[in-house]
Design a protein around this nucleic acid. Structure first.
Length: 260
DNA sequence: AAAACCTCCAACCGCCAAGCG
DNA sequence: TCGCTTGGCGGTTGGAGGTTT
């Protein structure tokens, strides 16, 4: 269904339609996805009879039409989780959204930019009045986007999932603990989802404690503005590193290997 | 009442990585 | 190896609706 907030600046002269989606278009897209499933986005416009580009179809489905999408304000727990995840992951909206049920990357990004970003700026502005700055440096963990070695035993058991994606890379250094598993890389069956989530939970908890020890303030809640967190320093410019710290204590192979 | 300003968020854009021939 | 296609992501835009002046 088209919403009250719409772009109306689409170009009617072009072949591919742009701008706000109509209820009719939504229905066509929904029917198409229900019939053929997600994926093969280049075929979707044709299959659905839509005069839209593949990207537009995909975006509309992922951000609006997909079932179980939560609407409305973010709850306090969701905001709390978002803050925690953002401290760990930075602007990895897709990863963050993957850990907040029912929320899309676009939702999270919009919420962050409109509600949280502005709040985080406030303490910084107050520092201009001569007060000593309480800037805190935080290491943002930058996971590599969804890469996993094909050689992993796991791979043969991973299948395409409706709302999760998997890509592969053949140049991951196994001996260097460079396994890269993001929350939206989901092995099937659900057992392995749980394992990965458990792993992430442990990882987040450990990292929180680590940061707590380092900087002396607790992790989570609305601590950012309360504790004067106004500088988020990205100290890891290497986009290819999964985390800023080695995964030594957890063997991802063991974690992810599947008993046949 | 209306103009100016602000907030929100759907949608677009450009880029990147992987797959494939 | 190279170029093209596709899927996916983060950054940004711009318009509707709300609020303030």
């Amino acid at each position: 269904m088209a919403t009250k907030r719409m772009r109306q600046s689409y170009d009617t002269s072009s072949v591919v339609r742009k701008g706000a989606w109509t209820a009719e278009e939504d229905t066509l897209l929904k029917n198409c996805i229900e019939k053929f499933g997600e994926g093969k986005w280049h075929l979707v416009p044709l299959r659905a009879g839509l005069n839209r580009c593949r990207k537009s179809c995909r975006l509309r489905w992922l951000n609006y039409l997909r079932p179980n999408i939560k609407r409305g304000d973010f709850g306090e727990d969701e905001v709390d989780l978002m803050l925690r995840l953002h401290k760990l992951l930075g602007n990895r909206w897709a990863l963050i959204a993957g850990r907040i049920p029912g929320r899309t990357a676009n939702d999270v990004k919009n919420y962050w930019n409109t509600h949280i970003k502005s709040r985080l700026k406030k303490p910084k502005e107050q520092h201009n009045d001569g007060e000593p700055s309480k800037h805190t440096m935080v290491t943002i963990i930058k996971p590599q986007p969804r890469t996993i070695s094909k050689s992993l035993k796991l791979y043969s058991n991973i299948q395409s999932h409706a709302t999760h994606n998997l890509t592969t890379s053949s140049n991951i250094g196994i001996s260097q603990n460079l396994y890269n598993v993001s929350p939206d890389v989901v092995p099937s069956p659900a057992l392995h989802v749980d394992k990965i989530n458990e792993y992430l939970d442990e990882l987040f908890d450990d990292r929180e404690n680590e940061i707590h020890d380092e900087v002396g303030w607790p992790f989570g809640g609305f601590l950012a503005e309360e504790d004067g967190l106004d500088v988020v320093k990205d100290v890891d410019n290497d986009q290819n590193s999964l985390f800023a710290f080695p995964i030594d204590d957890v063997d991802m192979l063991d974690l992810l290997s599947i008993d046949d």
